[in-house]
Design a binder for these strands. Structure first.
Length: 1009
RNA sequence: GCCUUGGUGGCGGAAUUGGUAGACGCGCUGGAUUCAAAAUCCAGUGUCUUCGGACGUGUGGGUUCGAUUCCCACCCAAGGUACCA
């Protein structure tokens, strides 16, 4: 009887579905266990081999916990709103809901094939109105809440208005906008309704604010940072400008400290915690205000007091973690983008500053960050007044200061900060030493612990800590600053100018946002003709003709009916990708509930996620926002835990082999003098894709360069084209090449010799249809290959279907685990799959003739050794080593010719979390009815492993020379005597006396000499 | 630059607390079976070797009776990134 995996796997997948084997109940005497995998975005490419890695791990653990007697919740769903479906819709006109549905069906088919123990009755889809009803609901809860710093939690906005009514806002400590005016009760009560709403908006946990976005006029859309390359859009190379737009924001900064503190309570990988810690970026220090001195002011300081007030009205605020070094300030540096730069620059310096600002704008932030070698900056000509010494401090701009952090300005203390030091050295700026007994002639001194301040007036002789306190106190005294804890974290922009996302349950009355009542939710996405932004630059929902809210009927009506009395315009933005994923883990607990996001019974039973497995790329996105919402839900008493996942594991990614073609654009400026003497100037742009064989990466700086005379060849090509037009007397031709840009090519277009199917590529990427493809000398167009993470966006995905077809799901499951440690990244290579497949065949054979006979001691030893190891492995998420353990076990039992049911039955249970189909089949062949899923996990018994003797490795000076079998219970002294008496020992020592003999009973003997 | 992770045979990897380096699998070599192939089974397989051994876990040091494991310095690769003042 052969191992017919196709039949077996189909049979048990059907059985599980029909019997709802993995359906979880919200009511059970068993202890609960909630195992969760991050749900996928159903892309058009289908599931690839990287997806199941984490799912298999979660599945193994879930099945194991079920064997251990837990009531297991193991759900799956789809994060089904997202950009790819929308882009596909823009290209093809197909509604994203349809493509999404198709993709989900394909995912489901693939997932089913792999035999996961999901409770499909709880499936959620974020794009489903029944689901996003509750996403909208949470948004409303956030809108109706403010953060009270006194109680250190979110509260309903009504508690805020009642304070306002009684006493105004003087005593309110809230997380709010910076520009809240202060008012007393009478003023508040005298405000109009609209004025009150405007004030409240500054306090709400979700609020409207003007935020800068990357606007691409040519594409009519906002771009993400990674959609922009070298300042232009990745697609099409259009210019991108920073533009202010009114957007919904989430006041996540209110939770900065609690998000930081919460990390101590959860068992998440340290690198992930580090990355959240760094993202939140807490630093303790002070803000310091420097007053800008005007040029005139310095010349005629005391003469005109009116001029003084007029011209020194600019304050530069900096945040510093070293206020103790304030007397070491010898210059200031502003980010080139800083709004004051244009205002304070003197006329003499203007040209130089402008040029520098422009040059900086072209550099990416990453560029500016990574480049510490190049020191650059420009003096603005302006000076600021030192708050204590009143000395002028020159104000520079430099691209090492980023506008997005802190205030975008630093007080430079060259003696205490290496970057400031280098900058000062480079531009010959003073480096005053304010440290006692420290030599700063070579480098800055940044060690806080040993700092003693000197040359600093009232700070002289103080340590870092004392000087810090004193400096802050003095700054506060003179009104020039205050102690401050600064967070890097900024409020999260929550609006997207997209179609395929959750609509906001918001309409506008007199410009003020109003929430739609829960009973009228969900507010469903409207139909639109086109999924592109409108011609006037409104988001795609601006195309909808039926997108107005009737407050009488509480329904969506035609835009034509908007009268601003009972019918009002609806919000045109949609929510971002992370909205739907920030509470989905709680929704799984009670996914079909239409009256509440979940029932109190459900949340109180399941509490939180016990094990969450997913990729580390979500460290600062999904995982930070989810923790934020969970804490909010906790504050509002909806959930019992303020952290949603106790334990989290990052599965390593599976890397794929990406393929690149090289894009290269040649600009040619031509001046043509025709025979009739008329002169014309033309800009001629020609685009190429170049075979890999012409490209080398410069060893110096990693820049891509073309090899040999390719450039000349291409210039010649263009010149020939130009000159083909006859009537030309004289031409001047200047070629300018743009950078060589590597572009991903889909790996399905590449053959085994790394050659590109050029026609296929042009068809796949129509914007390359007119490009000239330059083949190599051998007449082929080669791509270059690189190992990268497997991802649809890198076009290097391999899907599991073929492997499933050829070897079966159990083989694939085992193989993905066998590849290596779960947390580590590893390359995908199917070469070794025959190994695990033949293991399954050997396992199968073992059960060919099962007998009811007593197992031998060897049998029992093998079994219990395996139980022990596998159990330890699962608990440690070391799934690769348990696959090896199974192989060893089956090899041993095969050579022992074991056929005993007492051994083979527990073995089937051990294997079942890993290879559930074959385990079920063997289980039923052993005579059991029903599923193996609930069978109790075999119990390990030490007694079968007790050994009477041990084969000791005998080493000399740490090197193993021979082995010696000795009884387990032999004493140290006896072992030493036995080893020293052995003739091989004498042979090794060759007459020398051993200096020392180390005996570790049960482990090793080492002889030194 | 910074943060994180990693570096062990031809390849994926193992060695759980400092105690036999290379488990297990792939690949490769030889053999059995077969008309032949696939499949299966058996044996071998870190490198060098004068066949005694010597060397060997990115590099160089150190601690130790003993180091893949601990410490210091460095090199390389991947992922992330925010010069955090």
């Amino acid at each position: 009887m052969n191992y017919d995996f196709r039949e077996i796997e189909a049979k048990w997948q059907k059985y599980w579905a029909e019997n709802e084997t993995f359906k979880a109940s919200n009511d059970s005497d068993k202890p609960k266990f909630y195992a969760l995998s991050m749900f996928p975005y159903p892309s058009g490419a289908g599931l690839h081999v990287g997806h199941p890695l984490g799912y298999i791990a979660t599945d193994i653990y879930s099945r194991y916990k079920r064997h251990k007697g837990f009531n297991v919740l193991h759900p799956m769903g789809y994060d089904s709103f997202g950009l790819p479906a929308e882009q596909y819709a823009i290209q093809t006109g197909q509604h994203p809901a349809i493509t999404t549905e198709n993709n989900i069906n394909r995912y489901r088919e693939q997932l089913d094939q792999l035999g996961f123990s999901f409770d499909w009755s709880r499936e959620v889809r974020t794009s489903n109105p029944q689901y996003y009803k509750w996403t909208q609901w949470i948004f409303i809860q956030l809108f109706n809440a403010w953060y009270n710093k006194k109680s250190d939690k979110a509260e309903n906005i009504s508690s805020l208005t009642s304070i306002f009514e009684k006493e105004g806002n003087a005593n309110v400590e809230a997380a709010c906008d910076d520009d809240v005016p202060s008012f007393d009760a009478a003023t508040w009560n005298g405000y109009s309704d609209k004025e009150k709403q405007e004030i409240l908006l500054k306090y709400r946990l979700t609020y409207l604010a003007d935020t800068e976005v990357n606007w691409c006029p040519a594409l009519g859309t906002v771009l993400a940072n990674d959609e922009i390359v070298n300042g232009v859009s990745e697609r099409g190379g259009h210019p991108v400008v920073r533009k202010k737009m009114t957007q919904w924001s989430m006041r996540i900064t209110a939770y900065a400290q609690r998000l930081l503190d919460g990390l101590d309570k959860i068992d998440w990988p340290q690198p992930l915690k580090d990355s959240q810690t760094n993202w939140i970026g807490r630093s303790v220090g002070a803000t310091v205000k420097f007053r800008v001195m005007s040029e005139k002011l310095r010349v005629s300081e005391s003469e005109n007091s009116e001029l003084k007030t007029q011209n020194s009205s600019f304050d530069i605020e900096v945040f510093t973690t070293r206020p103790d070094t304030i007397f070491g300030v010898s210059f200031m540096t502003l980010a080139p983008e800083h709004e004051l730069v244009a205002k304070i620059t003197t006329p003499e310096q203007k040209a130089e500053v402008d040029a520098y600002v422009e040059a900086t704008a072209k550099r990416s932030e990453r560029d500016r960050m990574a480049d510490v070698k190049t020191i650059s900056g420009v003096f603005t000509g302006a000076y600021a007044e030192h708050p204590f010494t009143k000395e002028p401090v020159p104000i520079w701009i430099g691209d090492y200061v980023l506008a997005s952090y802190g205030t975008g300005a630093v007080m430079a203390v060259p003696c205490g900060d290496q970057r400031d030091y280098d900058f000062a050295k480079h531009y010959n700026i003073d480096i005053p030493n304010i440290f006692e007994g420290v030599d700063i002639s070579e480098e800055a001194f940044a060690d806080k612990e040993t700092t003693i301040i000197a040359n600093s007036d009232f700070l002289n002789g103080l340590s870092y800590k004392d000087a810090m306190k004193k400096a802050i106190a003095e700054l506060e005294k003179i009104g020039h600053g205050e102690g401050k804890v600064n967070y890097r974290l900024r409020d999260a922009v929550f609006s997207r100018q997209r179609y395929w996302g959750e609509p906001f349950p918001v309409y506008y009355v007199d410009g003020m946002p109003q929430m739609i009542d829960l009973e009228h939710l969900p507010l469903q996405l409207p139909e639109v003709e086109k999924y592109l932004p409108t011609e006037t630059g409104e988001p795609p929902l601006g195309n909808a003709t039926n997108w107005a809210w009737n407050t009488d009927k509480n329904e969506v009506v035609s835009n034509d009916l908007i009268d601003h009395k009972t019918v009002f315009p609806l919000e045109l933005n949609t929510m971002p990708g992370w909205a739907g994923s920030s509470q989905y883990f709680n929704r799984y607990m009670d996914p079909r509930n239409d009256d509440a996001i979940f029932s109190p019974e459900a949340i109180n039973y399941w509490q939180d996620v016990d094990l969450y497995i997913g990729g580390s790329e979500h460290a600062t996105g999904h995982l930070l926002y989810s923790r934020f919402w969970q804490k909010f839900m906790f504050d509002m008493d909806y959930v019992p835990k303020d952290e949603f996942a106790q334990k989290l594991i990052n599965q390593g990614m599976i890397t794929g082999t990406s393929a690149f073609v090289y894009r290269f654009v040649l600009d040619t400026r031509i001046t043509i003098e025709s025979k009739d003497k008329s002169v014309s100037r033309i800009l001629y742009k020609k685009s190429f894709c170049i075979s890999e064989s012409y490209i080398t990466k410069s060893k110096m700086d990693g820049v891509l360069i073309t090899q040999g005379d390719l450039f000349l060849k291409l210039c010649k090509l263009i010149e020939d084209e130009i000159r083909r037009d006859a009537d030309v007397k004289h031409t001047t031709i200047v070629h300018e090449k743009e950078e060589i840009v590597p572009v991903h090519a889909d790996v399905s277009l590449i053959n085994a010799s790394d050659e590109l199917d050029v026609e296929g590529f042009k068809k796949w990427r129509p914007e390359y249809a007119d490009f000239e493809f330059i083949k190599g000398d051998d007449g082929t167009f080669k791509v270059s290959r690189e190992i990268e993470k497997m991802s649809k966006s890198k076009y290097n995905v391999v899907n599991p279907d073929a492997i499933c077809e050829e070897y079966g799901a159990d083989s694939l499951r085992l193989y993905e685990m066998f590849l290596g440690p779960l947390e580590q990244s590893k390359p995908w290579n199917t070469a070794g799959i025959t190994g695990v497949h033949s293991f399954l065949k050997k396992l199968w054979k073992l059960y060919a003739a099962i007998e009811d006979k007593e197992p031998s001691a060897d049998n029992l030893k093998t079994l219990h050794k395996t139980i022990k190891k596998v159990e330890e492995d699962i608990e440690n998420f070391s799934f690769n080593t348990s696959v090896s353990t199974f192989m060893i076990c089956v090899n041993e039992l095969t050579s022992q010719k074991c056929s005993s049911k007492a051994i083979l039955e527990p073995l089937a249970i051990l294997v079942s979390p890993y290879a559930p189909h074959i385990a079920e089949e063997l289980w039923s062949r052993l005579g059991n009815s029903g599923s193996i899923a609930e069978a109790p996990f075999p119990k390990f018994e030490e007694k079968y492993l007790v050994e009477s003797s041990k084969e000791y490795p005998i080493s000399f000076n740490g090197k193993m020379r021979f082995k010696l079998e000795l009884p387990m219970d032999m004493s140290k002294e006896d072992i030493e005597a036995a080893v020293l008496a052995h003739e091989k020992t004498k042979e090794q020592l060759q007459g020398r006396d051993p200096k020392k003999v180390i005996v570790v009973p049960g482990k090793i003997v080492n002889i030194v000499g």
